[in-house]
Design a protein around this nucleic acid. Structure first.
Lengths: 234, 234
DNA sequence: CGGCTTATTGATCCGACTCAACGTTAGTGG
DNA sequence: CCACTAACGTTGAGTCGGATCAATAAGCCG
């Protein structure tokens, strides 16, 4: 199902160059022609869409191992803008090289479908959140998603550092920065989480699940197949 | 890029059976195993996700020519529930048949990527709407999207019948049914639209674009490549 | 150390929700 | 074909969650 290590090594030959981004630097802009796809090696990236008058909606936070730019097959043009949240390293793979790769390793095609399918699901969950949940439910849902994501990578599901600001969280959850703060304070007062700026401890996953209005999953159940790794991380 | 008519005829052999649905009937449920994909022939379908306590978010309205169930490659399990909005006819294609088809016509693979890519873009636009737009902007955006969709199929972009109720529109736009009504009334008072229950006339596309906070496109510019037709319609 | 970004808290206000009532339409069964 | 009924659409009144504006504190980077 995944690529073997031989495939990974083969891929190394296709990698054009590594790029380092500092916090706030832009990887690509909306409407720009799609020339490359990017594999994230370290750091993190936000992608977002904006209205004509400057309001923006963050559509996703991306972490090492993920591939950026593959959702754009339809028009060969980036739809979102992508910005580094911290010092970030990506591998740039030119589109022609990537297409050559797909010819050599056809299973990548199927992997792409799976990745896009997963993205669609994530997006739909986010729509449910944006359309129907209140601010508390939004933040609880968000913290649980982060937690699962860390658990999947064998990091602690209950203690972690966020790479995004309160404002970014708000722009992702469709609420104001101030509301994010207030609810962090409220959760802290109730003992559900401990938060010291970007360092977060989740004290009660069960209660968070209740607040988020989601069924409770015991942490670190990673029955799902591992994500596709196109590059060696770090 | 698209399938030829020979391919379409070939596909006919793979179509297992046609299903007729009446308004309110369910095509598939969330968490059900993915056994078939469905090509919509006539009518319309809504897909939606729901929270544990019954709130729901409509993730899309689907019209003839579209393929349902292809977003589920990741876990081979439907993620949304799909319900007919009116009397609707679909072609059921079993998953094994579809996989056989893909082997015989590899271009379908690429088409699937394009379709999913387009869906991701639509979903992201909807996220921006849900996260950052007010009720007026939401309804204006919605009416314009419908209009473009009709224009693409050579129907009138300014006069049409909606197949969904006010409640459905609200559940799609993340606002209450009553709010949808009020804003229809307001738009009507301002002369931007004329609405007689589900029959809608858009009197001023330019003004709608301004309200929606989107750049104005002259109607019926369909430079985009036509959608994939897997079945003959009607 | 100084300037800048980020985080937090308070006060006020408003858009949209909820609840409720009522008119209208379409669908059903006799 | 008509009467009945349930679903749909509309409008009003009152309320409230979260936005906005504003001020201050706390880190962070050069």
């Amino acid at each position: 199902m995944g690529l073997g290590s031989a495939d990974t090594r083969l891929l190394d030959r296709y990698v054009k160059r590594k790029r380092m981004l500092k916090r706030g630097q832009i990887l690509y802009r909306a409407d720009e022609e799609l020339t490359s796809v990017y594999a994230l090696r370290s750091g993190s990236v936000k992608t977002y869409l904006s209205t004509g008058d400057g309001r923006l909606q963050i559509t996703g936070f991306h972490i090492p191992g993920e591939l950026l730019g593959l959702n754009e097959m339809d028009e060969k043009r980036y739809h979102c803008e992508a910005m580094a949240l911290e010092t970030t390293s990506v591998c740039e793979i030119s589109l022609s090289c990537f297409e050559e790769l797909v010819r050599q390793i056809p299973s990548v095609y199927y992997q792409m479908l799976r990745m896009m399918s997963k993205e669609i699901k994530l997006n739909q969950e986010l729509m449910l959140l944006l359309g129907k949940k209140n601010a508390e439910e939004r933040l609880a849902t968000y913290l649980l998603n982060i937690s699962r994501r860390f658990a999947m990578r064998n990091y602690s599901p209950t203690r972690f550092n966020l790479s995004m600001s309160r404002g970014d969280i708000g722009d992702y959850l469709g609420i104001a920065e101030e509301t994010v703060c207030r609810i962090f304070t409220r959760f802290q007062a109730e003992g559900v989480v401990t938060s010291e700026r970007r360092y977060i401890i989740l004290n009660d996953l069960k209660r968070l699940s209740d607040i988020a209005c989601e069924p409770y999953h015991y942490p670190a159940v990673s029955r799902a197949s591992p994500p596709l790794r196109l590059v060696n991380l770090r």
